[in-house]
Design a protein around this nucleic acid. Structure first.
Length: 421
RNA sequence: GUGGGUGUAGCUCAGUGGUAGAGCACUGGAUUGUGGCUCCGGUGGUCGCGGGUUCAAGCCCCGUCACUCACCCCA
């Protein structure tokens, strides 16, 4: 075992596993694109200030989880811990909102957070997410939530529940924060140490503490929904009616708060109910952030989005049998035939077949064993005698049948066999 | 960051102080150039690392690192 290992919490994905990733990514792109979203690709590194300003100074992500460094130009940079801030920056930088009233983007790629790794939680992890700019909702919110649930269903993930909450406007949120502070301060001594710290920094997060004592105390706290203004309440009610119309089940959970500061109004999270992810039950989460673009110095633009963790989806996706990665294998009776074997393989590949050759030139028996293990449907057997006559044996592995073809005809013949009719 | 568990072959794991093992995988063969099943053989190890106890340590003790689970938080 080598001492050179990948960085803690950052994992290799070997060719054996990538077909599963490809299937997941293809499904994501397909669903996003069917809903009118186009892919955006932003850099993995951004100026640190982008994240501190958008995500919020008081969040765990900014406080203790960012991979930040100073580059040789003395610039403070950070490996992106999430995708929304980068998208917002790109949206503003290219004045996208001025060209089109509503823009729907999706992204897919690695994110970085320096947390203690656990099942379903890694320091480099892959997220796919969507952002919709320019529509204040609530119907686009409903469409997005519904899309996320049908996406999971398309992946075979059905043991889920949708949690929904509303935080109201920035003003509502500020008033609610004060109210919670007022409510919990007399109880501070009874709160868990973590929640005592939250009381100052972010009282909202006391509500989703997992400490039983905290939960008990939170029962008596005033619910956020009581603080919603008329517009906020109407927005929330319309969202719920739209979800009902779409037939998407959800549960209102007023303790749903989430760890990022930029959310306003709609907040949602889809969790697995299967328990197979250990403590990490959130498959995707998001919400509305109507204030962020103005906060970053742009024109006020309503926005809503969510992000999903691909490793978690992979953990949840049912196992499927991987289809063979090869159509045919060229084998030869004798290592001297390697140049001819290469030539034949080249001709087969030119016709679109996925072909490998065992160029180590072992015994025919060992080559055929390898063919069998590769899952390829056909073997092309090249021998001295055949070569002199300009022919090759085409062996159908499943049927145990063999036929003789001319070297000239073999490529097109194989193409006919592997092309789905 | 806090607490628990586990580190032995590429993988999954046995090995209760006395010569380092199994299954799988890989590989060679079972009468001339034909796969799966079966049978026979072979390659492969700093027992995570460092120290200590002992005549003797994979095994006991201390430290350390890695992985993992839970907490915290999140996707």
């Amino acid at each position: 075992m080598s001492k050179l290992r990948s960085v803690k919490g950052m994992n290799d994905i070997l060719p054996e596993e990538t077909p599963r990733w490809h299937r997941l990514e293809a499904e994501l792109r397909s669903v996003f694109e069917r809903h009118g979203y186009g892919e955006v690709r932003t850099p993995i590194v951004e100026k640190t200030a982008l994240f501190t300003r958008s995500i919020g100074e008081a969040t765990d992500i900014v406080n203790k989880e960012m991979y930040s460094f100073v580059d040789k130009g003395d610039e403070a940079l950070t490996l992106r811990p999430e995708g929304t801030a980068s998208c917002a920056r790109a949206f503003l930088q290219h004045s996208v909102g001025a060209k089109k009233p509503v823009n729907k983007w999706y992204y897919l790629g690695p994110m970085y957070r320096r947390e203690r790794p656990a099942r379903g939680r890694y320091r480099q992890f892959y997220q796919a997410g969507v952002e919709c700019y320019g529509d204040p909702g609530p119907f686009v919110d409903a469409e997005m939530i519904d899309m996320s649930v049908s996406l999971l269903a398309a992946l075979g993930i059905t043991e889920v529940r949708v949690l929904l909450n509303s935080l109201g406007s920035d003003q509502t949120r500020a008033r609610y924060r004060d109210a919670l502070k007022e409510f919990f301060t007399p109880l501070a001594a009874e709160l868990s140490p973590e929640s005592q710290a939250r009381l100052e920094q972010n009282p909202l997060r006391i509500l989703d503490s997992k400490s039983p004592k905290d939960q008990e105390l939170s029962q008596g706290a005033p619910p956020i929904l009581d603080f919603l203004g008329d517009d906020d309440r109407e927005h929330f009610d319309e969202l719920r009616r739209a979800l009902d119309a779409l037939g998407t089940p959800y549960e209102v959970d007023t303790s749903l708060v989430r760890g990022l500061d930029y959310y306003t109004r709609t907040l949602f999270e889809v969790q697995t109910t299967s328990g197979s992810l250990g403590a990490q039950s959130a498959l995707l989460g998001g919400g509305r952030y109507d204030g962020m673009l103005a906060e970053l110095g742009g024109k006020a633009t309503p926005a809503v989005g969510f992000a999903m963790g691909l490793e978690r989806l992979l953990h949840m996706m049912p196992e499927e049998q991987a289809p063979p990665a090869l159509d045919a294998f060229v084998v030869m009776a004798g290592a001297a035939l390697r140049p001819e074997a290469l030539r034949l393989a080249k001709a087969l590949r030119a016709e679109g077949a996925r072909v490998d050759v065992d160029l180590r030139g072992g015994s025919l028996k060992s080559q055929l064993r390898r063919v069998d293990k590769s899952g390829a449907a056909y073997a092309l057997v090249l021998g001295e005698g055949e070569l002199e006559r300009g022919v090759v044996q085409l062996k159908d592995l499943a049927r145990h049948e063999q036929e003789e073809l001319t070297l000239e005809d073999a490529p097109q013949h194989l193409r006919g066999l592997i092309t789905p009719s």
